[in-house]
Computed example of a mutant assay.
Amino acid sequence: MPAHRPPRTVLLTGAAGGVGTLMRGLLPAHGYELRLLDRVAVDPGPERVVTADLADRAALREAVRGVDAVIHLAGISVESTFEKVLRANVEGTYHLYEAVRAEGVPRVVFASSNHAVGYHPRPRHPRRVPAGELIGAGAAHRPDTFYGLSKCFGEDLAQLYWDRHGIETVSARIGSCFPEPTSVRMLSLWLSPADGARLFHAALTAPDVGHTVVYGSSANTRLWWDLGTARALGYEPQDDSEVYADKLLAELGPDDPDAPDQANLGGPFCTDPPIWPR
């Protein structure tokens, strides 16, 4: 395999979505020229924009041609019907990897989710979880929804394309990437936008990642999972959700770890039917 060189041109799929919009504003400061893809129109800017669905395999080939890496955010980001999740998240991710393989793109950063392991019981400590009880990146898949199941597929597809085709992937099990947390649960899972950009930068530039699974959150005091594999890539989170804790606890009260919508890592996604918001 050729030596890894830091990417400069990166395709950002799902560029019109919530995380995609945040990263469009933040990643250029890390030295990237972005190319944007979404099935809906993206606000015009300096970037090259491809408006196409993940089912359009010819358009995907054109979109990935000549880029150094892909950050794959596109797809359905909440629970939906199996048929819709299958088309957007399973078939769409397969089409993306096939385009990457055909065009010789060496690396993908895949936006996985905490919902791939959502049925793991959450740590029960009300604040700081001892290091030995944090949920590790090697935790077995326990999806909480069809959406979570699609993220398990994406991680396994990434492993297959590394083993068979030598395409490197960092699968980032993202928690909740918003400007600030909006629930008590998010105090444990929050990924600040600035830390999100730092995580993606580390995932794009670290050498010899093969297929690496990491958790995506800030350095939260109430963190539930182990950021060790992300830190090994060079990720150094700077933010902590604790600055929002007093306000959220005063407004919403503490979570009940015995409640059906709080007992597991996936929170309200583990109820039947899943409860929104996450």
Rank of each mutant, 00 (worst) to 15 (best):
H141N: 06
D38Q: 02
E33M: 14
V78N: 14
Y161F: 13
A58F: 12
D246I: 02
E47Y: 00
V10C: 10
R35V: 13
A41V: 12
V117G: 09
R39M: 11
T182I: 03
R101F: 04
W162G: 05
G132C: 09
A102E: 15
W225C: 12
A137W: 10
W224Q: 06
L34W: 07
G104Y: 11
P106V: 05
E168A: 07
R65A: 15
C177Y: 03
L189W: 10
I275K: 15
N264K: 02
G31M: 08
A158F: 07
E103L: 01
D239V: 07
L149R: 08
R61M: 12
G14I: 09
G175D: 05
L191P: 04
T221S: 14
S112V: 00
G31T: 08
L26A: 10
I71A: 13
A172G: 00
P121G: 04
G196A: 15
A63N: 11
H95T: 12
A58S: 15
S176Q: 10
P6L: 12
V85P: 11
H4V: 04
P260D: 04
G253M: 09
G17M: 00
A219Y: 04
R185M: 15
R5N: 00
G132L: 06
G166K: 06
V70G: 08
V78D: 14
F200G: 06
A259C: 02
A172V: 15
S113Q: 03
L199G: 02
G210C: 08
G25N: 07
R164C: 13
